[in-house]
Design a protein around this nucleic acid. Structure first.
Lengths: 208, 208
DNA sequence: TGTACATCAGTGAACGCGCGTTCACTGATGTAC
DNA sequence: TGTACATCAGTGAACGCGCGTTCACTGATGTAC
């Protein structure tokens, strides 16, 4: 018999999630540093004071949003970079994966792009940590690839960082293109693929 | 005889610049979307209402800051990418140029990094336009390079975009490293150089 | 199963405060003659 | 050069409003026996 939450805990979780969802929606048009606690509770339909039962501040809520936006992405990242298979096909698949993710979770992607350099220090720090984890996971995956024979640890980390940054750039490019005509989105995807391909070519000839 | 501003115009310019400077300083610790007009005038020492003699809103002031931060950078960009000369030396010089610029104008660089994806639409748009101009200038410079023989216009634009993004990434990396120990800053510069070098290698073998 | 007590998520009133914007103003600077 | 008038950058009072935070509370849920 599985462990079920009590009624009270379940209701609390539900309210907490409603606060997170409402905040994320409000953050489509503003930054976290201007998001008001009363705005969020008003959107959910609870008293302002209820906020404090879940978060100490909007910054605290922001850190929770970082976990929600990036925490579940680690398996996907790993899978994207995994070795084997043809390079062009892997690139095409990675770009499609990013495009799909942006289409499925635009608000989360926008939040990360916006707050990565935003005005709230604990949130910047939380994003930095998650991205560092991504880079480390990509590095580990690259290290398993036969193409990485002879590469120094420094260079593997350098390349992993380049890939992570490029994924973010691609994601935020797709975000800007979300409401654009099909033609423009197609061009954005093509540019993203070529940039990744150029990095691949550089990688292939790095030790020449 | 050169044209000099009247006393009244000169004083107005001075106040306007003081508002821009005060705003930029306040924006080190918050986003534009939470910057208050009264905060800015308080920092300058003028009445809140004086603000309206210069800007219609803080968003309007933000757009002026974009021009101030990026407007004068175009010659520098052009110079960085110009052809000729050894690739490794050019890369080292470009990275040093970026490091120097970040050290000299940290608040401007932070402002651009923060507001590029920030919560104020007209400011995002102004930054987007300036970056598009950079990309176009880099593209034009790349086109003049003998190494670009045989490259399609699409690929030149793709590469120019990659360079511009990489410069921004490098600048924001240096920004984070500004107060870090020398050792870490040295490593950041080394990573930046290697990433640019990898892109150079990719470029050199693009048409293979 | 039933009872008595503890917990605690959410309430609602109250507070002091800083905000953006309006308005009529002042007085130094600029201009016409 | 001097005078009379126009311009306009900056002022200061006033406004209504929403903010974050405090506090004692309520009543449903949980727990001990």
């Amino acid at each position: 018999m599985s462990h079920t939450l009590g009624v009270r805990q379940a209701q609390k979780q539900k309210t907490r999630q409603a606060l997170l969802d409402a905040a994320l929606a409000l953050l489509e048009e503003q930054s976290l540093s201007s998001l008001g606690l009363r705005e969020v509770t008003r959107a959910v339909g609870v008293a302002p004071t209820a906020f404090y039962r879940h978060f100490r501040s909007t910054a605290d809520l922001g850190v929770a949003l970082v976990e929600e936006a990036l925490g579940s992405l680690h398996p996907m990242i790993r899978h994207t970079v995994s070795p084997g298979e043809d390079s062009d096909e892997r690139i095409a698949r990675a770009v499609e994966l990013i495009a799909g993710h942006v289409a499925a979770h635009p608000a989360h992607v926008r939040f990360i792009a916006r707050e990565r350099h935003g005005g709230v220090q604990p949130v910047r720090e939380a994003i930095r940590e998650q991205l560092a984890r991504f880079a480390e996971e990509v590095r580990a995956e690259l290290a398993r690839d036969a193409a990485s024979a002879g590469w120094s640890e420094t260079d593997l980390r350098m390349l992993a960082g380049l890939y992570v940054d490029q994924m973010l750039i691609t994601a935020s490019l797709f975000l800007e293109t979300l409401e654009a005509p099909e033609e423009e989105r197609r061009r954005a995807a093509e540019t993203a693929r070529r940039q990744l391909r150029l990095i691949s070519v550089g990688r292939a000839h790095w030790l020449d």
